[in-house]
Each structure stands twice: as C-alpha cells, then as structure tokens.
Amino acid sequence: MEPLLVRARGLWEGLARVPVSFAPMGGVSVVVSPESGLSPVGWVGVVALGESAIVTAPSTSTAVIVRDALATLPVEAVTDADAVRGVLSVARVLGPAALSYASPAVFRRAEPGVLAVEQLPGGHPDLRRLEELASREEAGEAALDEITSPAFVVRERGQVVAAAGYQAWPSRTAHISVLTAPQSRGRGLARLTGSAAVAHALGAGRLAQWRARPPASRRVAATLGFEELGSQLSIEIA
C-alpha cells in the first residue's frame, strides 16, 4: 500500500482505542469501544480508507446490530448516510466527511504573491473575531479554537479575514483547520493560509490531515496536493 494510506490507517486504528485493523483484502471490521475516538461518546464511528473500513460501537449489543446491518452494504457505502439509514434505525448522523492526506512528496505550496501571511498565537483574540463573522456551524467545523499550532492569517484593513492552523493528533498527525470570512471567500485565501499551516506541519515531520464536508473545502485540499483516501461517518442509533 502507498505510505499515505498506511499512515492514515494507523492513525484511525489507534483512535479506535481497542485492537482493530483495516482488513488487508477489504471488508468491514466492527469492534466494541466505549471510549472510541472515531465518534462522539455513545455513538457508532465508521472510517473507511481504501477498500476497508473499521467501525466502533459503544456496546456489544449495538455492535451486533451494526455488524449485521453493514454486512448488507458494499464497503464504499458504509459512510454514505443515506445508505446507512436504509439498513439501520438512525437518530442522527455527523458527516460524512472526506479524509485527505498530504506528505512532503505530494504537497503543492501556494505562493503568497502580494498578500502577506502573518503568524499569530493560536489563542489570539483576532481569531475569535473571525469566528464571529462565520456561522456557528462553519466555526465549529473549522475548530480554530482547538488548534495547537500557531495560526497563519491574512488581514484586510487590519481585520483577520482568513486563518488556518492545526491540532496535534496522535501518530504525529496534524489535523488542519481553515476558516475564511464569508465576504472574503472565492479569492484563494483558504488555499493561502491553509498552505502555510500545512507547510509548518510537514516541516515538523507530521502527517497532514484535511477533513472536510463542503465541496469548496475539498477542492482547496486537492489544489494543495492532498489525496482523498476515504471518509468518516458518525451515527447515533435510534
């Protein structure tokens, strides 16, 4: 397997917090893990990478139900919310979110041009002001308040209008966060700030992970050279 896929699978196997592996020949592996990092506590977490998927369930009884239901779906459909609703009684879902990864070998850095990228501490109040300009859902998706790296920002008329950084995850992974003010979108600012954050992460020897639901965010990741290797879905069983 390609090195990016191996590292990505190792990350999520560790986040399952119980022994589990992506089946080398394809398929779905379901385990019981009440403390799983694949989903919110009490939910079912599904991560598909390549042609295999791992699933964590909060209890043995839930694991049996989920294992039997997902066995009726092809691997590529186990993170499809509509397909899962067709075989399980679902109360709520989060996702699916595409999982993309970059290493120094595939990363395509964006050149700043006339725009300057400034570096700020991760807890800087200007980042909170940027979050206030976006919707609550967008700010929650970006999770700039969770970054452990410096923030890389672009200002216009003194105000931060785009920012990116990353949260240090296990297995030396950098989980990238990017947010652009609504009135400043469509001008490449997410690509510019995201590029700076990714370069910082790769320079520290980390695997860069870009998790996104909106198509626009996925396009930014692709422009920077990220490879979309799979997806993640969280399910609350009714």
Rank of each mutant, 00 (worst) to 15 (best):
E2D: 15
R9E: 12
L11K: 10
L15Q: 15
R17D: 06
P24N: 02
M25K: 15
S29R: 15
P34K: 05
E35H: 12
P40K: 03
W43Y: 06
V44G: 09
A48T: 14
L49F: 00
S52I: 12
T60H: 11
T60I: 07
S61D: 15
S61H: 10
S61Y: 06
A69Y: 03
D80G: 06
V87N: 08
L88M: 10
L99R: 13
S100E: 00
A102H: 06
S103M: 12
V114F: 08
Q119C: 05
Q119S: 13
L120A: 01
P121Q: 00
G123M: 00
H124N: 13
R129M: 11
E131V: 07
E131D: 14
S135L: 06
A139L: 08
A139I: 07
D145G: 09
T148Y: 02
R155C: 01
R157T: 06
Q159L: 14
V160M: 03
V161D: 00
A163W: 07
Y166F: 15
I176E: 12
I176Q: 05
A181D: 06
S184D: 06
G186L: 02
R187Q: 14
A190C: 01
T193V: 15
T193K: 01
G194V: 12
S195A: 07
A196D: 04
A201Y: 09
G203N: 04
R206G: 00
W210I: 04
G225C: 09
E227Q: 14
E228K: 12
L229I: 09
G230A: 10
S234I: 12
